[in-house]
């Protein structure tokens, strides 16, 4: 069962303050009217404990939007690999985003291994935070089996009535508990509260679509010629929002930038998107996925089919970000239900 401790809610602010003295802490903070983003915090008041998934997932700390990977000097015929990383504690990661990080870990530790990613990941401490209820109508975490914790964290916080129940999952997590000294041993009534909460959650969180977890791959595999993609083709504006906010999209482009001395420069890795007009364009001007419907089909297949074959895992976490952010209201749950309906 592992080690559990509790933290009084009244001690939460002090906890974040002390935590931020160990390493810089990033946590969800409110941004504008109804958006949230992970940003650096030094006090508990800044942290939004009740938040819907942030604009960008914590992916941005694991593979930054723009990352320098080498520096070169043409005259010297010299190039130096660069590894950018920083120590951070990420507080408040929901179970959907923990699943996203686990997916990225699998991708980047599978051969060919991505050393930059692996080193950076090891500098990040992850503190999870349980959702006691649905964040909003876009989430589909239950059908993706990500509404309950499945590991992937150092510490995991669950909000109970007057305290937080904390699962200590790693040695790094244990060291934080020992160092901050605000915690109490979890008592019988705390475990009871946790059990009650999880039981209540099992009643609240039900498959959000008209197909079960196991049926999703088959549904998409057989959907290639579906009319649903034609409808989506006429609606999608290819803004790329859906892939940029996805916790498991990891496509990138590599760009060289030379300095004004025309001798030294650097190579960067930047996020790319299969939804962009030029993504599948090749020499000669041909594009493998010219229309937006085929690009969207590709995106869905990269979540519900291809990774199952390659990594035995769905790459949709159910966070709902793609539906929430879509300019054209292309909705993941509606798309799945439309495919189910068509099949019948």
């Amino acid at each position: 069962m592992g080690k559990y401790v509790t933290l009084k809610k009244s001690d939460f602010n002090e906890f974040i303050e002390k935590l931020s003295k160990i390493k810089p802490v990033v946590a969800p903070v409110a941004k504008g009217k109804k958006s949230f983003a992970f940003a650096e915090v030094t006090t508990g008041e800044e942290v939004a404990l009740q938040y819907i998934p942030t604009i960008l997932p914590p992916k941005k700390y694991f593979m930054p939007q723009k990352e320098k990977i080498l520096e070169f000097d043409k005259k010297k015929q010299d190039w130096t690999p660069i590894l950018e990383y920083s120590e951070k504690i990420i507080f408040g990661v929901h179970t959907c985003d923990l699943a996203g990080i686990q997916s990225l870990n699998i991708v980047f530790t599978t051969k060919p291994k991505d050393i930059n990613y692996i080193v950076r990941k090891d500098k990040l401490v992850i503190i999870g935070l349980e959702c006691n209820n649905y964040c909003d109508e876009h989430a589909s975490c239950a059908v993706m089996d990500n509404h309950l914790p499945n590991g992937g964290y150092d510490l995991f916080f669950t909000e109970l009535k007057n305290s937080f129940m904390i699962h200590v999952n790693t040695q790094i997590g244990d060291e934080i508990i020992k160092r901050i000294k605000l915690f109490q041993e979890a008592k019988k009534q705390d475990f009871q509260q946790l059990d009650d909460l999880r039981a209540a959650k099992r009643k609240i969180f039900k498959d959000e679509v008209k197909v079960g977890h196991e049926g999703l791959k088959n549904l998409f595999d057989k959907s290639v010629k579906s009319k649903v993609w034609k409808d989506i083709d006429s609606r999608c504006v290819a803004c790329g929002n859906c892939t940029n906010v996805c916790p498991t999209c990891y496509c990138f482009d590599v760009k060289d930038d030379i300095n004004l001395d025309f001798n030294t420069g650097a190579r960067y890795r930047v996020w790319d998107s299969c939804q962009n007009e030029n993504f599948a364009k090749v020499a000669g001007g041909e594009s493998f996925r010219e229309d937006r419907g085929s690009r969207q089909l590709h995106r869905f297949m990269r979540k519900f089919s291809y990774p199952v074959e390659k990594f035995s895992r769905y790459f949709c976490t159910g966070c709902g970000r793609c539906s929430r952010t879509c300019m054209a209201q292309i909705n993941l749950k509606e798309t799945i239900n439309a495919l189910v309906k068509e099949k019948k």
Partner: peptide
């Protein structure tokens, strides 16, 4: 670039103007 400003805007994590 032949992709929308939204791409860069998302990477900068701005709140969407349409949401405002």
């Amino acid at each position: 670039p032949d992709n929308a400003v939204c791409v860069e805007c998302k990477l900068n994590e701005n709140e969407c103007m349409f949401d405002k």
